[in-house]
């Protein structure tokens, strides 16, 4: 019984969203979103602040639950407690314990995912090496620079070797050099077959994704490769495409046309 889903899980999409609705206090934040993300894809969610990106991310991971529609992760319906083991999550905030050392932070988050003993130590060393923090593991995180915290936060999300990585604005507020290094790591992981979903509102980052989903006012207004989106909008850059598609959307739905 358990063998069949796991065999199928290889073929199942990483995420499958069907007609997602989410309301807060009577206000519709996400409206009729359907989206399929195959395994191994580097998928970017693009949209202005307040467009519903973070809400969508939380629905994709099962931290939050939709008011309507369904979400499946690797073929399993979510929210489901055991599926929280399947992905790595990095929120906008660094979400680290400043009093503790880098290693203590990683050990704690590793233990939450059931890692222990030698296996835990091996994984801590592996992820620390990946984000180049091996020499700083003994320092309290409070003494880390902003970039080091960001990298440690990413390392914590990778500890349990998730097949799906969900990152909410991983490069917000960090310098260009570090941004490049974070994206280099994401590309490496993507090539290893890890599915990555990343939100951003930095347009040049969007171009590095395999596919992009553009979200505006709670609606998914376009899903395609960056090149195809630019071509369809008949413009030169992602940024222009985003603005053009946003205006079309506003005219079509008859709302916000004057904005």
């Amino acid at each position: 019984m358990s063998a069949i889903p796991s065999m199928n899980a290889e073929l199942e999409p990483a995420l499958q969203l069907h007609q997602i609705q989410r309301r807060f206090n009577g206000k519709t934040v996400l409206d009729g979103i359907s989206l399929t993300i195959p395994q191994g894809e580097l998928f970017g969610l693009l949209g202005p602040s307040g467009s519903g990106k973070t809400t969508l991310i939380k629905l994709m991971t099962g931290i939050d639950q939709a008011d309507g529609g369904s979400v499946r992760m690797l073929g399993e319906p979510i929210p489901q407690l055991k599926m929280l083991q399947a992905f790595g999550y990095m929120a906008q905030a660094d979400a680290l314990y400043n009093e503790l050392t880098g290693k203590q932070n990683l050990a704690f988050f590793g233990a939450l995912f059931g890692l222990k003993g030698e296996q835990l130590q091996a994984r801590i060393q592996a992820v620390a090496a990946l984000v180049e923090l091996t020499d700083h593991l003994g320092k309290p995180v409070g003494a880390y620079s902003g970039g080091m915290k960001r990298r440690l936060s990413l390392a914590a999300a990778l500890l349990h070797e998730p097949r799906l990585l969900v990152l909410d604005e991983p490069t917000v507020g960090i310098d260009p050099v570090l941004r490049r290094s974070v994206w280099a790591e994401l590309s490496t992981l993507s090539k290893q077959g890890v599915t990555i979903i990343v939100t951003t509102h930095v347009m040049d980052e969007a171009e590095k994704c395999n596919r992009l989903g553009m979200i505006r006012d709670g609606k998914l207004i376009a899903v395609d490769t960056p090149e195809a989106i630019i071509a369809e909008a008949g413009v030169a850059t992602i940024e222009e495409a985003f603005i053009a598609l946003g205006q079309q959307q506003a005219v079509r739905s008859g709302t916000g046309a004057t904005r």
């Binding site: 931290i63 083991q85 979400a95």
Partner: peptide
């Protein structure tokens, strides 16, 4: 407020 609760709850902890 530091966001660690969110991270905590993004793990399979009850």
């Amino acid at each position: 407020t530091s966001g660690t609760l969110e991270r905590l709850l993004a793990s399979p902890i009850r």
